[in-house]
């Protein structure tokens, strides 16, 4: 057995002693982690200034697998923790890496308010349409008609349209890709890292064990083929029209890229106006 002279480009970013990871065969989360590692390399961010915050769920495991400063918060509280982290240490690049159930269901309120206040954090939401880790219950992103363990007759609740939710709440960068669009994801992450403010990237990923199997959509590979065939890239499309169906077309692309004062900047400006010289600023700002 010879030792390989080359190393996997994602390896320096992984806690390899924790591999193999818990994600199922055909799950798309690992693919997004590859893109994340390439984006970190391309954006040339100093790695000791990058912090990854996750909530609970399959995607929440990312914080435990990446070899960066990371924190695995309680369910739904990734964004509040990240907000505090960023406000206390503004030199950090804070990335929230979590799933749809964690960010949008139990953490939905935090999500809209962080976007409204334009906290300078980057939110990567891996959307697999279901609560994966807890056994496949209906999530707020489950498409109409989809079967889950808690909707044996098909889901009848209208799902969230996440890019629309993010834009209307005030995010300055909104993009959606699928796990098939690996190079686009990496590029989008680089753009988001450079952006000041609340950046949101939704990544659709297969959950072959629970979502795809229960809905007879094939395995992970079948879903990736589906993403390849049914995705349409429409950069700048109106987020209002980005609803996802069980078997419909998927609109992907970068939809929002605007400038807006962040929470920190707005606070500094306001306090300077009101308090004038007596305002001493924030530590590390």
């Amino acid at each position: 057995m010879s030792v390989s002279p080359a190393i996997n480009p994602v390896e320096p970013f992984l806690r390899t002693e924790r591999m193999p990871h818990i994600w199922c065969p055909g799950c798309g989360i690992g693919t997004t982690v590859n893109c994340f590692s390439r984006a970190l390399v391309d954006s040339k961010l100093p790695l000791d200034k990058v912090a990854v915050v996750s909530g609970i769920g399959c995607t929440g495991r990312v914080a435990g697998y990446v070899k960066l400063d990371s924190f695995h918060t309680t369910h739904g509280r990734a964004i509040p923790f990240a907000t505090g982290l960023k406000l206390a240490n503004p030199s950090l690049n804070v990335v929230v890496y979590s799933g749809d159930g964690d960010l949008i269901a139990i953490g939905g309120n935090h999500f809209i308010h962080a976007a409204r206040r334009n906290v300078d954090i980057k939110v990567i939401c891996v959307n697999n349409f279901i609560y994966g880790m807890t056994g496949g219950q209906v999530a707020p992103t489950t498409p109409l008609g989809a079967t889950a363990t808690t909707s044996p007759y098909g889901c009848f609740e209208a799902p969230f349209n996440l890019p629309f939710l993010a834009e209307s709440s005030g995010a300055v960068y909104v993009a959606r890709w699928t796990a098939y669009h690996v190079r686009h994801i990496a590029h989008s992450m680089v753009e988001a890292f450079k952006k000041k403010g609340f950046a949101f990237i939704e990544i659709l990923a297969p959950c072959p064990t629970l979502y795809q199997r229960r809905n007879k959509l094939g395995d992970g590979l079948e879903t990736m083929r589906y993403y390849k065939q049914h995705s349409v890239i429409k950069n700048g499309a109106s987020t209002r029209e980005l609803k996802l169906d069980l078997k419909g077309e998927i609109t992907v692309g970068k939809f929002v890229d605007i400038e807006r004062p962040t929470l920190q900047d707005a606070m500094d400006q306001r306090y300077r106006e009101v308090l004038k010289e007596s305002y001493c600023g924030r530590g590390g700002a």
Binding site: A6, N8, P9, V10, E11, L14, M19, P20, H21, W23, P25, G26, C27, G28, I29, G30, T31, V33, N34, C35, R38, V182, R183, A186, G220
Partner: peptide, 29 residues
């Protein structure tokens, strides 16, 4: 108990590392 990939036609490989980018298990590059 899985069937990993093997090289069928190595001379055609361009070294683009797309396999590395797709692999959810960080097992190939």
């Amino acid at each position: 108990g899985y069937h990993p990939p093997i090289l069928e036609n190595e001379p055609a490989c361009t070294g683009c590392d797309l396999c590395g980018l797709y692999c959810p298990d960080f097992a190939i590059f």
